[in-house]
Simulated scan of single mutants.
Amino acid sequence: MSRRYDSRTTIFSPEGRLYQVEYAMEAIGNAGTAIGILSKDGVVLIGEKKVTSKLLQTSTSTEKMYKIDDHVSCAVAGIMSDANILINTARVQAQRYTYAYQEPMPVEQLVQSLCDTKQGYTQFGGLRPFGVSFLFAGWDKNFGFQLYMSDPSGNYGGWKAAAIGANNQAAQSMLKQDYKDEITREEAVELALKVLSKTMDSTSLTSDKLELAEVFLLPSGNVKYQVRSPESLSKLLVKLGMTQPAAEAS
């Protein structure tokens, strides 16, 4: 039945569904898992890297984590070419707001503005929805630390903990069980690693298969966005007992 109604984004099925939008959401299920956790002193984002070639310069490139402004970053799951367009759009919007009002753009206003763009691509003919979901992490003076999730339909919502990408339902159920209010950033990192280790496709958890980013406040009051280095991730995994230390060459 769906074949009669899925050739256009503007045609509703008799059940009131837009199949093209649903297909875009299905495409995200093929991407690496990304998890976001809101803590009392920051926001943690962690993602599973699918591209693990030894030739990739990991020190200068990221696959899942992107900085939008000094106070906002995001994790991505889906078609990266689509994500790049939306990330650049969000960066421009954030800078225009800062130029006009001389202060950082509120996090939810930035997310809503980007989701308005995504929703437009589900409404007009000749376009297809963006096949990408985001986890936005940020801080502003209005609501402090915030975590938002958005999907290809343009819908978004604020979350305490959320997962997108492959096996997101299993990750979401684990987060629902183990998340607790007043969680610290260190505990959030440990929880995110625990959930990802049980939901990612790979059998072993190593630093070259992960990206971990954090948004937190410095003692000076400035917002800091930090991506953990592979060396720091390796030490953390060994400390938590989630991987074995590398054997020294004899």
Score class of each variant (00 low, 15 high):
1 M>K: 03
4 R>P: 12
5 Y>T: 09
7 S>A: 14
7 S>Y: 06
11 I>Y: 13
12 F>M: 03
13 S>C: 03
14 P>W: 02
17 R>N: 03
17 R>E: 01
23 Y>I: 06
25 M>I: 10
26 E>W: 00
29 G>M: 09
33 T>H: 13
35 I>M: 08
42 G>C: 15
44 V>R: 00
45 L>D: 10
50 K>W: 14
56 L>V: 11
60 T>W: 14
61 S>N: 11
69 D>Q: 02
71 H>E: 14
73 S>Y: 08
73 S>A: 15
75 A>L: 12
78 G>Y: 02
79 I>Y: 02
81 S>L: 01
95 Q>T: 04
95 Q>L: 08
96 R>N: 11
96 R>A: 15
99 Y>K: 11
100 A>F: 14
102 Q>N: 05
105 M>I: 08
107 V>A: 02
108 E>K: 10
110 L>T: 02
113 S>R: 05
115 C>E: 07
115 C>A: 13
117 T>R: 08
117 T>W: 01
117 T>N: 09
120 G>P: 06
121 Y>P: 12
123 Q>P: 13
126 G>Y: 02
130 F>P: 04
131 G>S: 03
132 V>G: 03
132 V>H: 04
135 L>Q: 02
138 G>K: 08
141 K>C: 13
143 F>Y: 03
145 F>R: 11
146 Q>R: 04
156 Y>G: 05
160 K>T: 11
165 G>H: 00
165 G>S: 00
166 A>G: 13
173 S>R: 00
176 K>W: 04
177 Q>G: 06
180 K>S: 08
182 E>P: 09
182 E>D: 15
184 T>G: 07
194 K>Q: 00
197 S>D: 14
198 K>D: 11
198 K>C: 05
199 T>K: 07
202 S>G: 11
204 S>D: 13
204 S>K: 10
205 L>V: 09
206 T>R: 12
206 T>L: 06
207 S>Q: 12
208 D>G: 05
211 E>L: 03
212 L>R: 06
214 E>W: 06
219 P>R: 04
219 P>Q: 02
222 N>T: 08
224 K>Y: 05
225 Y>P: 01
227 V>D: 09
233 L>R: 13
236 L>I: 06
238 V>N: 02
238 V>A: 01
239 K>W: 11
239 K>S: 13
239 K>R: 12
240 L>F: 03
244 Q>V: 09
247 A>K: 06
248 E>V: 14
249 A>T: 14
